[in-house]
Design a protein around this nucleic acid. Structure first.
Lengths: 290, 290
DNA sequence: CGACTCATTGACGTTCCTCAACCTTAGTGG
DNA sequence: CCACTAAGGTTGAGGAACGTCAATGAGTCG
């Protein structure tokens, strides 16, 4: 189901955004709409902002003036608890709408921080108003985008409902993979932009446990992990792990990525470790963004 | 913050819904809009459905034809996993919009099951279309309702991010209390319509742990629990428990609900159990709905 | 009254959170 | 260029928390 969430998009840089009028077109594309559907003649105030890594797009509680649509890069949405603990609530990727959950209260519901260099469209509320009023095609695109955003939120919650830590992590990796595929990136080779601590916060576990779960899954041959670069080696088995809802996951079966080189049946099952796996990736992974 | 989510509504039965034309009015009221804002002259096809306990409002995967707005009662949203495990993803209360997350894919994203006798407005998609096209006030109400729904989804996710089981449970109780307050019910006396198993599923833990956590909090004097009836005895302390994000919750301090009868300082702190608490509530709690 | 669901409680074993040490990587300044 | 520092990541040890299995009440319906 997450795979159907997105459709492949042309490479971001293939789209030239020269004058302001084309921004709208680009936004429609990002939201998954028909780029030609909205009359390009319309132009409403809108801005393309560039954010450096660590830059704050908007602060929790600040009055909501614009909604944002991520064009490239990634951001984390954070809520600061009263004790100062920073809870990561979601990871935003290109095409995501930010800030809509604040429309009801008139204030930003979370702080959004760029995890890398990002570009983001800022759509002022009056512009949104105007667009929805004047263009029915736009309004349709917008409704569907909101629906998708709601679906994404419930998927994020789904990641958390699994009881076991590596199941949660496996689900996250698959979720990210599906989103990557939807963006036209490789679903096998992923680049995390969250560090272990933020990822742990998002998944509701200790960051040491994230580390350990990665190691466990890497030793089992499901993944290759080198810092923030991840390669999925065995989709089917990873999915199997992600499915587990309760019950003490039967002792890890070592999985060999391809048909050949299968473990002989009389090899020791439990303590066996596949030596060469989990080595750093020799060739750098393609950067997902910009 | 959740408290500001809703505003007190008049008692549901105070609103007489005789002819079809008044339904729209009622829906606007439920969504938190100005009841007089939308021209009452408009009427579009719409239905008020009554559901018995256990009735299925819509099935996961079924084509989406109507959105639903809960008028009274409560429902659980469930996703069935491939292994047959039923994951509860949310609890829907009056004013909630159901089905919108399926708009994007054209199919219901979850199965919705009535937890008690419910009444629900079914708003066919073409009707929604017509309304949004013809009435700007309606459209505003609708946008805000969607925004609120997105916020609710992220709040549900928030419940899950806490690591400790009783913290998750404490957050849930406070969340329910805030929603109850927003609906004009008592924020102190709550009636769960989910059983332990479903609640456990929603919170991502074993149902025995739900039981035990209730017991623990009841013994600490935070709550009184009798089956599905809950009375909050110490809001401040309950909130304190709900805040805890990490770290081994300092050993439970026994809390006395009111100023009088405070524990003497030299009383044993650790093993002390307050005897009479957690007894069944003598008088039945007011039924939240219908 | 029996059959059923729901809730509670106990026992036991595993998971995973915490604390801590250590290593790598990256950035800075001498 | 290297030393130093800081941040990020991994690993180990220990103990509490919690999931599983199991048995027992309590409430409901036929």
């Amino acid at each position: 189901m997450p795979a159907s969430l997105e459709r492949p998009l042309p490479h971001p840089d293939a789209v030239r955004v020269s004058p302001e009028a084309d921004m709208l077109r680009d936004v429609v594309r990002l939201l998954g709409g028909d780029a030609g559907a909205v009359e390009p003649s319309m132009h409403v105030p809108m801005a393309l902002r560039r954010l450096d890594e660590g830059a704050v797009l908007s602060h929790e509680g600040a009055p909501l003036q614009s909604l944002h649509i991520v064009r490239s890069g990634s951001l984390k949405c954070v809520r600061t608890r009263e004790d100062g603990y920073e809870q990561v609530t979601s990871l935003a990727l290109p095409g995501d709408v930010l800030g809509f959950d604040g429309l009801h209260g008139g204030r930003h519901a979370a702080t959004e921080v760029a995890l890398q260099v990002c570009t983001v469209y800022a759509l002022p509320l009056p512009s949104l108003h105007t667009l929805r009023e004047r263009s029915r095609p736009w309004d349709d695109v917008w409704q569907r985008a909101l629906s998708r955003q709601l679906l994404l939120a419930s998927e994020t919650a789904d990641l958390l409902t699994a009881v076991a830590a590596d199941v949660r992590l496996a689900r996250f990796v698959l979720w990210l993979s599906a989103r990557a595929a939807g963006l036209g990136w490789s679903p096998r080779r992923l680049r995390l932009t969250l560090n272990r601590r933020d990822l742990a916060s998002l998944l509701g576990m200790a960051h040491e446990t994230v580390s350990r779960s990665f190691t466990t899954m890497a030793d089992a041959g499901l993944l290759r992990v080198a810092n923030r670069e991840i390669e999925i080696l065995a989709f089917a088995e990873l999915r199997a792990r992600a499915r587990i809802t309760r019950r003490p996951a039967e002792p890890f079966a070592i999985v060999v990525p391809h048909e050949d080189d299968r473990a002989s049946p009389h090899a020791p099952r439990e303590p066996a470790r596949w030596p060469p796996l989990r080595t750093p990736l020799q060739d750098g992974l393609p950067r997902p963004v910009t």
